[in-house]
Amino acid sequence: MTNDSVRPALDGTTIRPVRTGESEAEAALIVRAFAAGPYGHLPKGAERAAFEADTAGRAADGAVLVAVDAEGGVVGTASVLRASSRYSRVARPGEAEVRLISVDPGAQGSGLGAALTRASLEEALGWGAAALVLDTGTRNLRAQALYERLGFERDAERDAAVGADVDSLAYRYPLQRREDVVVRLMRADEADAVAELVESAYAADFELNPRYRADIVAVAERARAHQVWVAADAATGELLGTATTPRAGATMSPVAHAGELDFRFLGVAPAARRRGIGETLVRHVLALARLRGIDRVVLNTGPDMLGAQRLYDRLGFTRLHEREYRFVRPDGSGFQMLAYGRDAGVDAA
Rank of each mutant, 00 (worst) to 15 (best):
Y340W: 10
A53Y: 13
A131R: 02
P210A: 05
G332Y: 05
A83W: 04
A124I: 01
A191K: 01
V90M: 01
V194Q: 01
V285M: 08
T55C: 15
N300Y: 15
D54G: 10
A164Y: 11
A59Y: 07
V75D: 01
S88M: 02
A156P: 10
A115S: 09
T117R: 14
R149F: 00
Q227K: 13
R292P: 07
V183Q: 08
S120Q: 08
A131Q: 08
A33I: 12
G267D: 08
R92K: 09
D189S: 03
E71M: 02
V98I: 14
R99K: 11
T2K: 11
R296H: 11
A124T: 01
A63G: 03
A143F: 14
L239M: 01
M1N: 12
S168L: 09
V328C: 06
F206L: 04
M186Q: 03
F265D: 10
T20F: 04
R86I: 11
D192I: 00
G163C: 13
L100E: 14
A225L: 14
R323N: 08
G12W: 04
E47W: 05
R99F: 09
R247T: 02
V64N: 02
G111M: 03
W229P: 03
E71I: 03
A67T: 06
L175K: 05
R342H: 05
L141M: 11
I216Q: 07
A243L: 15
R89I: 12
P8I: 00
L299R: 01
R224D: 08
L81S: 03
R158E: 08
G126F: 02
G45E: 11
G249T: 07
A53N: 12
I101Y: 12
L134C: 10
H284Q: 13
A25G: 07
W229E: 05
R99P: 06
E221D: 12
V282R: 04
A131L: 04
A115P: 08
V98S: 08
R16W: 06
E153W: 06
A164N: 13
G316F: 00
A289E: 12
A130T: 13
D215E: 13
Y171W: 15
E153R: 15
